[in-house]
Computed example of a mutant assay.
Amino acid sequence: MSASDFSSAHSGLMDRVYRHQRHIYDLTRKYYLLGRDRMIAELDPPAGGTVLELGCGTGRNLILAARRFPDAHFYGLDISAEMLATARASIARAGLSDRITLAQADATAFDAKALFGRSGFDRVFVSYSLSMIPGWERAVAAALNAADGSLHIVDFGQQERLPGWFRTLLRGWLAKFHVSPRETLLAEVGRQALALGRNPHFSVLYRGYAWLVVVDGPGSS
């Protein structure tokens, strides 16, 4: 299967999974996608800056970030046309269509210049998407390549300090939605960042429930 065919297959899968769930996604996920708001608060883009989200889903994070940082312009991409339909409607209702631009694309291989007319962004963030993306390591590389400034990631950790029964139940629930916490996430982001001469910073949230990663921009001390 070619990369294009693989991308199309994953796009179709995500559309099937979220065709109906997209209508209640934000209501149900707010209870267990922990750490998103902290990550957004720490973006702190410069005045007039640009922010890109990979795997923007329903647009919830972009709307929250755009309200918090009214001087920045926001961009989002997602592989699912169904999710983007919800995102566009939500962004329009929020009155933010002039500050948030969306495009359908694969987070592991996208041309930001062709999609958005720019190749780099002051901030790039990825919220609970790497655990859903086949070939997620390539998405990390693409995010680093697009980040002229810092890269911010929040996703499921390994729940190492939580009871075993909780981890078992969580993993079983997530598997129903093709979500798989990435055991090597911290190591892989660290490896790629250091190879580019960029400094990674890791935080373990809620006893290992989630991991928060910030990679400094190029040239940061």
Rank of each mutant, 00 (worst) to 15 (best):
V51N: 07
D15W: 07
S4Q: 14
V179E: 04
Q159L: 15
V51I: 13
F202P: 00
A143N: 07
M1I: 15
A107W: 02
D148M: 07
A81E: 07
Y25L: 14
E137S: 14
H152T: 06
G59H: 05
N199S: 14
A72M: 12
F166H: 11
L170P: 00
D78A: 04
S7K: 02
A210K: 05
K176D: 05
I91S: 04
R138A: 15
L43P: 01
G149C: 12
D78C: 07
R191E: 09
R207P: 04
R171P: 05
D44Q: 08
R67W: 10
A146D: 06
M14Q: 15
I24A: 10
A107L: 06
M83D: 03
N145V: 06
S131E: 04
L212M: 09
T58Q: 11
L212Q: 14
L144H: 00
N61P: 02
V179D: 00
P70Y: 05
E82A: 15
L185F: 06
V51P: 04
A9V: 14
Y75C: 01
E53H: 05
L170K: 08
R167V: 13
L43S: 02
V189W: 07
H73P: 00
F6C: 08
S8P: 01
I40W: 01
A94V: 03
P200K: 03
Y18V: 15
Y32N: 09
S131V: 04
M14E: 12
T86E: 13
T108F: 02
V126I: 15
D106R: 10
G59N: 09
H73R: 14
R19C: 12
S4L: 10
Y206E: 09
A107Q: 07
L13H: 09
L151R: 06
D37K: 09
Y209D: 03
R171Y: 15
E183F: 10
A114Y: 05
R138I: 03
Q21A: 14
F125K: 00
R93T: 10
C56A: 06
R123Y: 11
A193Q: 03
R22L: 11
D26F: 13
P181R: 01
Y128P: 08
A72N: 08
G120D: 13
L174P: 00
T101R: 04
G190I: 05
A105H: 10
Y32D: 08
S203G: 00
G117K: 14
Y128V: 14
Y25S: 13
I133Q: 02
G172M: 11
G117W: 12
L13A: 09
W136P: 11
R67K: 14
H10T: 12
R29H: 15
G117V: 12
I133P: 04
L27Y: 12
V140F: 05
R68M: 15
S11H: 12
L13C: 09
Y75M: 02
I24N: 03
M39T: 13
L115S: 07
G49P: 10
S119I: 13
G164H: 09
A85H: 09
D111H: 01
F156S: 03
Q159H: 12
V124G: 04
R93Y: 00
I91A: 03
L130V: 01
A94G: 02
R22V: 15
R171K: 12
H152K: 11
H201A: 13
G95H: 10
E53V: 06
V204W: 00
I91K: 08
N145C: 11
A94M: 04
F121L: 07
F116L: 08
